[in-house]
Simulated scan of single mutants.
Amino acid sequence: MNKHASSPWRPVAVAGLCALLIGIGLGRFSYVALLPLMIDAHWAAPGGAAQIAAANLIGYLLGALVAHRLALMLGTARVVRVAMVAILLSFIACAFNFGLAWFWGWRFVAGISGALLMILAAPYLLSQLPVAQRGKAAGIMFSGVGWGIVLSGFAAPVFGAEHLALAWSALAAMIGLCVAVSWKRYDKPLAAAPAHAPAAQGKMLPRGALLALLVAYALDAIGYLPHTVFWVEYLVHGLGKPVSAGGAFWVVFGVGAALGPPVCGLIADRIGFRATVIGCLALKGASVALPLLSTSTLALFASSLLVGALTPGMGAVVSGRVIELEGVGGHQRNWALLTFFYSLLQAIGGHAMATLYASTHSFTSLFAIGASALGLAAVVASLGPKHGKTAGLAT
């Protein structure tokens, strides 16, 4: 048994919540609420503000590529600490308007660091707990994504475009608090933590149902982009709603993101991971398309809540589907493969959508592309057997 297995699970879970709140909830998603403020404050043109958003996605891709190697070289705990501090510094830096390249570079740093926290923090912390405590601890950890979104949804409208520097600073203060709360939980190197385990040897060549899942998950990375990059911008500048309303809908998105993973997990326990993945992708596609059909308050609320819930919720059920197909032994390398392709399509799709928006200033095409990608993903995910280990990987 790991020498830290007897540690109380709640402080460990809170440390993981803080890491994901820093890396994804604020480090990644707070910019959705800040994007229209960047434009209104004349800190960036619409096209430039969108490119700043794409910088974070590109950084996330690079972070996903180097996370495992950095953990082997420096130790997981040290990498997690450096990543948290790097995101804190990026928010402090973004409180100063030194031009597009300045923002692009710091959002790129935040993207790299967010990927490191997403990939490394939870496995490191969960390895300190007995198996019986890991499920409830993981649920609390991943809710950090949603609560970070909620915080940014409240903070951005309070300061507004006239005090944009204060908005960045307030978010930096929240990150600093989370760093302080969780810092001591990353002071114990683990000799044989799962995050340090070497990858299995051999070439990874997905086939059958695993290949279908990989493609579907990569398409999900495109489908969710309209909401996770342009949602508040659409509400404020597309529909003419006040910044406070945009922030309120972003809070709804965050509440959904906090509640989504445990709800999706309960559903998967009842109907299986394959059916849950297919159903979640189909529902998410319909939710992304909803603004194309109606811009009523109810429709926008439902779209915010459901896409929010199914953003981190998809990661949970897709990971479970990988275990269902390849077993526990094949989970680590296959999940790493899916995460890489998700990051790749996210970065490519984010850059393409930012370019499209900069040239057309049309939101309709963005929602149509996202909904279509998710609909196709649901079809692709339905391919393959329901249960059991398939041919999977050739090694």
Rank of each mutant, 00 (worst) to 15 (best):
A50C: 11
I271F: 10
K284Y: 14
L100I: 12
H163P: 09
I278W: 09
G272Q: 04
L89R: 03
A15W: 00
L171Y: 08
H351A: 15
L214R: 08
A49K: 06
G148Q: 06
Q201F: 10
L126N: 03
L70Q: 00
G260H: 02
L70E: 00
I175S: 04
A122P: 03
V32C: 10
D40Q: 15
V322T: 06
G388F: 03
A33T: 10
I58G: 05
L266H: 12
P194W: 07
Q128N: 11
G315S: 12
L34M: 15
A394C: 13
I22D: 01
L383N: 14
L310Y: 05
W231C: 02
V232R: 01
G256T: 07
A336G: 10
I22C: 04
H196D: 14
S90M: 01
C178W: 02
V288M: 08
L345R: 08
G238Y: 02
A67N: 00
T228I: 13
I323E: 14
P189S: 06
M141Q: 02
R333Y: 02
K136L: 13
L383W: 15
F142T: 11
H361M: 13
V109W: 01
G48C: 13
V288W: 05
G48Y: 13
V150R: 07
I175F: 06
A161S: 12
Y124N: 04
L292R: 01
A378Y: 07
V179F: 11
G254C: 07
A33S: 12
L70R: 00
L374C: 10
P291C: 06
V179P: 05
Y234H: 13
A216H: 06
W147P: 09
A13E: 01
A377H: 10
I278V: 15
L125G: 01
P157V: 07
A13G: 05
V131G: 14
G350S: 05
A373Y: 02
N2I: 12
S30K: 08
M204S: 14
V255L: 15
G265C: 03
L338D: 03
G105S: 08
A373P: 06
I119H: 00
G75D: 00
A192G: 13
V252Q: 06
T295D: 14
E233I: 09
A13F: 06
G238M: 04
G223K: 02
A193L: 04
A83Y: 00
G285C: 04
L292Q: 03
A191V: 13
A50W: 09
F367N: 02
A44D: 11
G59S: 00
P123H: 00
N2L: 12
L26T: 08
L225Y: 07
I278Y: 05
L376K: 10
A195D: 13
R270W: 09
L306W: 06
A67C: 00
Q332W: 08
M353S: 07
G135W: 08
L337G: 06
G370N: 05
E326V: 13
V263F: 12
P157K: 02
A44S: 15
S296N: 12
G75C: 00
V380G: 08
V229H: 08
L235G: 02
P206K: 02
L17F: 15
A165R: 12
L210P: 06
M353E: 10
W106T: 01
L37Y: 06
A275M: 13
L235S: 03
D269F: 04
A86T: 01
G265D: 08
V255Q: 07
S382Q: 12
L213S: 10
F142Q: 05
V82C: 11
Q51N: 14
F159S: 02
I348D: 11
Q133C: 11
A53T: 12
L116K: 00
